[in-house]
Each structure stands twice: as structure tokens, then as C-alpha cells.
Design a protein around this nucleic acid. Structure first.
Length: 205
DNA sequence: GCAGGGATTTTCT
DNA sequence: GAAAATCCCTGCG
């Protein structure tokens, strides 16, 4: 079975974001184990990254992002959805990786009970969707991911190193230049982002 | 298939 | 008071 170590989750978030691809995220909840393989991530940096929640320093909301590598940072977005991050920076620094999509592996019936009658690939193909599918919430904000009910597990033994592609991060309006989004090439569960243009500045006239 | 808009609430300016 | 690391439904082609 094996386990994920803190060292594997430590380092520049661009690097850990790639390393997380292929690892598994599982939640042992009241209805059994739900989990899947991480197929899409985004890095958020501590330096010079205006899109990172840590950019303007530590607040009550983002405090978990400043914990040691291997902790969870979970926050509410758009008033409705939760996003799940893996902290990667040293304590006090504020770097993390957003997990954007999973390939469901375990507990698909329980996932579907929470997500509705959708196809397998639509269960976890988005940051809000995967949190809903696995059935966890902000109670795990600040919790360790190395053991416990919500945890990371190594790639399956027969998994080959994935082919990784990268591109611009999704849904942000600042620091959009760098390709800090990473996904497993060809995987059907990578989130489909509508071809919505990068937000245009509303034209003044 | 694609574009547009609504839901909903916390957070910071 | 506005923006936010989103998702889903509708209308239209």
C-alpha cells in the first residue's frame, strides 16, 4: 500500500503540483471510502502571485495555507462551493496546490448519491465537484493529509509515470501569464473549462 | 455545442 | 459594495 510522506509534498508548488498527479485522494466517511486519482492541479505561489490567497498575507480565512506541507487548505468559493488544496510551502510561507479534478476509483455509488445521476467522468471533474463527490467539508481545513480520514495515497503500483501537460490557470484574473495548471494528458476526467475568454476588461466609452 | 446568467456567502476594500 | 481558484441550467443553433 505505502504512504505519502511530508517530503514528497514539500517544495516549490509548481513542482509538487506535478508530483501530485497520479496520487490518490481518499475520504473515509460515514458511507465508506470514496476516492480517486488526481488528474489535474494548479500551483499557487508565495512570491509574486497575485492570484494566490496568500498574496496579501495571512488572514483568518487562509491561515491553513501557512501550515506545514501536507496539510489541507479548504475554503468556500462563490458562496457555494468548496475548493481543496494541499499545502506545499514551509510553515509560515503560504504556498499550496489546488486539486481540480479526480478520476473516480472508489465509492462511485456514494459519490453519485451526492452528485446526482451523472456519468463517471462528471463526478469529480472540477474543484467544487470533487469535494462534493468525496463528501468532506471545511471540518478538514487545516487537517493533515498524511493520515486520518482525509488523506493522500501514492499512485497505484502498476501506474506508469503520467504524461503531464500544462497551461494557464482557470478562473483567475490576476497573474494569468504563467502556465501553472497541470493535468494528465488525455485523461477523460480533466475538468472541461468552457471556452470562456479570459475576462475582458469592460470597455469604457 | 456554446453563450449567458443565476445561485449564494464570505472576505476584504 | 464588489469580487471571488465554481457549477448548473436555460435558450439557441
Amino acid at each position: 500500500m505505502g504512504r505519502v510522506t511530508r517530503a514528497q509534498l514539500s517544495g516549490p508548488s509548481e513542482e509538487v503540483a506535478r508530483r501530485l498527479l497520479g496520487m490518490r485522494l481518499v475520504h473515509d466517511g460515514s458511507d465508506g471510502r470514496c476516492g480517486g486519482r488526481i488528474v489535474e492541479t494548479e500551483a499557487y505561489l508565495a512570491e509574486g502571485d497575485e492570484a494566490s490567497h496568500s498574496f496579501r498575507g495571512r488572514t483568518a480565512r487562509n491561515a491553513s495555507m501557512f501550515l506545514a506541507p501536507g496539510h489541507a487548505y479548504i475554503y468556500l468559493i462563490y458562496g457555494m462551493h468548496l475548493c481543496f488544496n494541499v499545502v506545499t510551502g514551509p510553515p509560515g510561507v503560504g504556498e499550496a496546490v489546488l486539486v481540480r479534478a479526480l478520476e473516480p476509483l472508489t465509492g462511485l455509488d456514494a459519490m453519485r448519491a451526492r452528485r446526482g445521476d451523472v456519468g463517471d467522468r462528471d463526478l469529480c471533474n472540477g474543484p467544487g465537484k470533487l469535494v462534493q463527490a468525496l463528501g468532506f467539508d471545511r471540518a478538514f481545513d487545516g487537517a493533515t493529509l498524511l493520515n486520518g480520514q482525509l488523506r493522500l495515497l501514492p499512485p497505484l503500483g502498476d501506474a506508469r509515470a503520467p504524461v503531464i501537460r500544462s497551461g494557464p490557470r482557470v478562473g483567475i484574473t490576476k497573474s494569468i501569464a504563467r502556465p501553472l495548471r497541470y493535468w494528465i494528458d488525455g485523461n477523460a476526467c480533466v475538468s472541461r473549462v468552457s471556452k470562456r475568454r479570459a475576462p475582458l476588461q469592460r470597455r469604457k466609452r
